[in-house]
Design a protein around this nucleic acid. Sequence first.
DNA 1: ACCCAGGGTCCTA
DNA 2: TAGGACCATGGG
Length: 273
Amino acid sequence: MRGLDVRASIGSGQVFLWERRGRRWQGIDGSRLFELREDGPLPRPAAGFFRAGDDYDAMLSEISADPVVARAVRRHRGLRLLRQDPFQCCITFIVSANSSMARIRDGLARLCSAFGERSRGDGRASHFFPPPARLARASLGQLRACGLGYRAGYVREAARMAPDLDLEGLRGRPYPEARERLLGVPGIGPKVADCIMLFSLEKLDAFPIDTWMGRALRLHYPGAFAGRPGTEKKYMQMRAEALRRFGRYAGLAQQFLFKDARDVAGARWPADA
DNA sequence: ACCCAGGGTCCTA
DNA sequence: TAGGACCATGGG
């Protein structure tokens, strides 16, 4: 795929089970292992994951109508939105709540080591992501041993609800319905639901607002995005404003703004280590 | 010891 | 509907 920046895409807070050795990358998506070279051609199996079928130029052109987004797009051209395995994505962002990148990474890696099947990969990619049924029958003690803290109970309950929740089925449902279903799962609030929908359920109008995005929006758009997304009503008002400003691919714009805010703040991604 | 982290839940007014 | 305490835990 032309113009793909693997490093920027992997290191933009979407995925946490990737390992880099020099220019070689390995990553886990559900029960699949992706292996690719930073400068080589994209392996066929990874095409869907990197959204190779999108008309990316057209999408970037649309969100670049906003000058701030346009600048972020120029700085991170090859950053891609990724199409993740829904269950892994769901657990990932339940685990992410009120945590940090480093901890999310470690927790998920330990979750895979403890409950996932062995893969050919190394490090964080050494085990596949455990299926719902496996996590559903894990003990809270085992889950907490992975460093999940109070989120351990949410993870197990979400795994138990997975068959009825039918995440794959939600791919074909509209945003409001998918959102409502997700909010019925303990540990999933407005922000986590938006992450799951944007990163795995094909809802590019989902607009996750975490602390970084909140800060970035207040900085770049004083007035339009005043206040904090603390209450659900306020959160959805801010998302509505984002859709007005950035259009139907607001979630994609969010990813560029998020990446840019983190870089400006001097944050270090795992790939930089 | 204090604050923050890709927040959510639950209780109270 | 809006605040605010509380939730584990590692790192700065």
